[in-house]
Amino acid sequence: MRVMVFVKATEDSEKGLPPTEEMTEMFEAMGKFNEELVNAGVMVDGDGLKPSSAGKRIAFDGPGRTVIDGPFAETRELVAGYWVWEVKDMDEAVAWAKRCPNPMPGPSELEIRPFYEMEDFGDALTPELAEREQQLRDRLSGQ
C-alpha cells in the first residue's frame, strides 16, 4: 500500500532555515534514514516545503475565490515536508516512522495517511459506477 507521511510544521520550521549545527546534524541523520528507506525499496518520493509565509491559500465559497497570503496561524496543522512510501501495511509504515530521527529541534509529529486504492471501494463501486467514474475522468482529461 502507498502512504503519505506528513512532517508537521513547528514554530521553528515556520521560521525558515537558520543554519545551525543542530540542523546540520539533523540533516545528516535524515540523509541516513532516507538512504535506509531507499535501500529497503520503501521510499517513492519525498521533499521538504518552505514555511507557510511563502505559501498561499485559495478559499472557495460558492462562485467566490479569495486568495489568502501566508503565513498561516495554526502552526500545528501545517505541513513542513512529506514522503510517499510503499509499504505492506500500516504496521510497517509505523515501524519505519518510529525509526525516523526527530525532524525538528523540539517536539514534533509525523502523520501517516494511506492513499485510496480501488479495493477500498469494494462492492460499493459497481461496474456501472466505475464506468461513470471513468467517463467523468475521461471528460476531465478532455479525452
Partner: peptide, 8 residues
C-alpha cells in the same frame, strides 16, 4: 509492532 519490525 514487533512483527512489523521483524518483517523490515
Amino acid at each position: 509492532a514487533i512483527e512489523a519490525i521483524f518483517r523490515i
